[in-house]
């Protein structure tokens, strides 16, 4: 980052005449703190002036410079962010310029909460300002920015939840429209990306329903088809199986509807396919079978069917605990106890 070399050259605030009117406030006064941090001289100097600014309540251009300097040294300094935001609002600073400035900071400090929350405040303020003719272009640009960041860090929690907030808050059909294909692009790169699977669920079911998707049976069919295809590519992918369970529960579809599909994944050998069944794509030759998630799924089908099929579920849970998923032996034994108690 080009800015860093500037930081080193930059004079301390205590050496700058234009800051001479501010009284720096040391951190701990009259006290020998436990577990202290050894600050760099630059950080100590900047935060002492920042405390000085807070104590007088000054909100000015130079406060923007000061808070930026602190944020670059410590992006988790939430007070610097909050004070910066309050200063921007007080000064009626152009928030689109602030957003631009923040692009670089966001890329540099992806994993910091405050980076993303600040953008959210800015987008909200832009949206609420009557003078801004339309907030939709800003939201669209923001969506594109988020996409760029997700290309760098495809599982960044804050980035994903921010994207979900942005879509919901602006709730514009132009924003939602590309989301499914965006998810599919990411899942093509990494079918095990659970963040992308969660986003898909959010897009398809989070809002209730999307425009043009009033035909819910058709949507469920599409989702089942897509998920089954992804499972056939890499059967031992818990993200895809969790999604499958999620859409069935969401739509109150019985697990048993998937029985013939699941059966293809529970034996040790890939099934011989004489006829290509597009509804039920089979595992590939390299698939490592039986698939634990499929066994679990089949046991759930048996349990839901009740009566004498509970015994079949119990046999599967035993095999999971003893052989296929021994780490969770206690959990599978619990499932057996519960099933016996309620049958």
């Amino acid at each position: 980052m080009p800015r860093n070399s500037d930081d080193e050259d930059r004079k301390l605030y205590s050496e700058r005449p234009e800051w001479a009117d501010v009284t720096p406030v040391p951190q701990y006064q009259g006290l020998n703190p436990i577990a202290p941090i050894f600050y760099t001289p630059q950080y100590k100097d900047a935060t002492e002036y920042f405390r000085g600014v807070i104590s007088t309540g000054e909100k000015s251009e130079r406060v923007l410079e000061l808070t930026e300097a602190i944020i670059r040294m410590n992006p988790a300094h939430y007070t610097a962010w909050q004070y910066r935001y309050q200063t921007l609002i007080a000064l009626k600073s152009p928030l689109d310029l602030e957003l631009k400035l923040m692009d670089g900071i966001a890329i540099q400090f992806l994993k910091t909460y405050q980076v993303w929350h600040h953008r959210r405040l800015l987008l909200t303020a832009l949206h609420d300002t009557p003078s801004s003719s339309s907030s939709q272009p800003a939201a669209l640009a923001e969506l594109a920015f988020i996409s760029r960041v997700l290309m760098v860090d495809s599982k960044n929690y804050h980035t994903w939840s921010y994207r979900q907030w942005l879509l919901s808050y602006f709730d514009d059909v132009h924003l939602w429209t590309g989301e499914i294909s965006f998810v599919e692009r990411l899942l093509e790169e990494d079918v095990r990306n659970n963040s992308a699977w969660h986003h898909r669920f959010f897009v398809v079911f989070g809002r209730g329903q999307q425009q043009g998707e009033e035909d819910r049976p058709e949507v469920l069919k599409r989702e089942l088809g897509y998920t089954k295809d992804q499972i056939s590519l890499a059967p031992n992918n818990p993200s895809a199986w969790n999604y499958l369970r999620g859409i069935l529960e969401q739509t109150k579809t019985p697990f048993s509807n998937l029985e013939s599909f699941v059966q293809l994944y529970v034996s040790s050998e890939p099934p011989k396919q004489d006829i290509l069944d597009l509804e039920n794509p089979a595992p590939g030759e390299s698939a490592e079978l039986p698939c634990v998630a499929a066994l679990e799924f089949l046991a759930d089908i048996h349990e839901q069917a009740g009566a004498d099929r509970v015994q079949k579920a119990i046999e599967i849970w035993k095999s999971l605990g003893d052989k296929y998923d021994t780490m969770r032996k206690k959990y599978w034994e619990y499932r057996i106890r519960e099933a016996l108690a309620s049958s």
């Binding site: 202290p36 941090i37 050894f38 600050y39 950080y43 935060t47 410590n74 300094h77 007070t79």
Partner: peptide, 14 residues
Amino acid sequence: LVQGFPARYVSQDA
């Protein structure tokens, strides 16, 4: 606790 934290812990200043 006694000696304190090195400068990389500046990220924990807040």
